[in-house]
Design a protein around this nucleic acid. Structure first.
Length: 153
DNA sequence: GCCAACGTTGGC
DNA sequence: GCCAACGTTGGC
């Protein structure tokens, strides 16, 4: 069992959208970075824990807990000419972009990025490192436990 | 295979 | 809207 932080822009897909989604589940569409794709395609397992993170918004931070709920499958938006995520080089026979489904565990209070930065326990988090833009990053057991504890207080 | 130019991310 | 940092593209 592993843990992950996954960024989403709430203007596009927020924790509230996940609460309202059918089966409180969404396919994690739109990732167009190979490192992030490889995590979903090669490393994630059903049941892995997910920190749902809001980025590019007024209060960036963790907004809820979720879990990986499917094996990898193709991101359909790569084939959709009308989608901003359309990839003209994608091939149905050999899809370039794979994703997993993510299911809500619970919406929490927001743990703002500002607060995360004040916690020495989180100083090593990849997503807090200067210049890091990766939208999916692994989280250690210690980081996960600390954050879940903080969110439960 | 190098690397300059360009595009994107994401906090501020 | 700015801009630092980083990823991708494409000419050579």
């Amino acid at each position: 069992m592993a843990y992950w932080l996954m960024k989403s822009e709430p203007d596009e897909f927020s924790i509230d959208d996940l609460v309202k989604a059918p089966r409180q589940t969404t396919s994690w569409f739109g990732v167009r970075n190979y490192v992030a794709r490889n995590f979903m395609r090669d490393t994630m397992r059903i049941g892995d824990g997910v920190l749902f993170y809001h980025s590019s918004c007024a209060v960036p931070g963790i907004a809820g807990l979720a879990k990986v709920s499917s094996k990898p499958h193709p991101d359909e938006s790569q084939f959709d000419r009308k989608s901003p995520y359309y990839d003209p080089k994608a091939d149905r026979k050999d899809p370039r972009w794979m994703l997993v489904d993510v299911k809500l565990v619970k919406k929490t209070r927001v743990m703002p990025l500002d607060e995360m930065r004040t916690c020495p326990e989180l100083a090593g988090m990849i997503t807090l490192k200067r210049g890091n833009r990766l939208s999916i990053t692994p989280v250690t057991d210690a980081e996960w436990n600390f954050i879940v504890g903080k969110l439960g207080e």
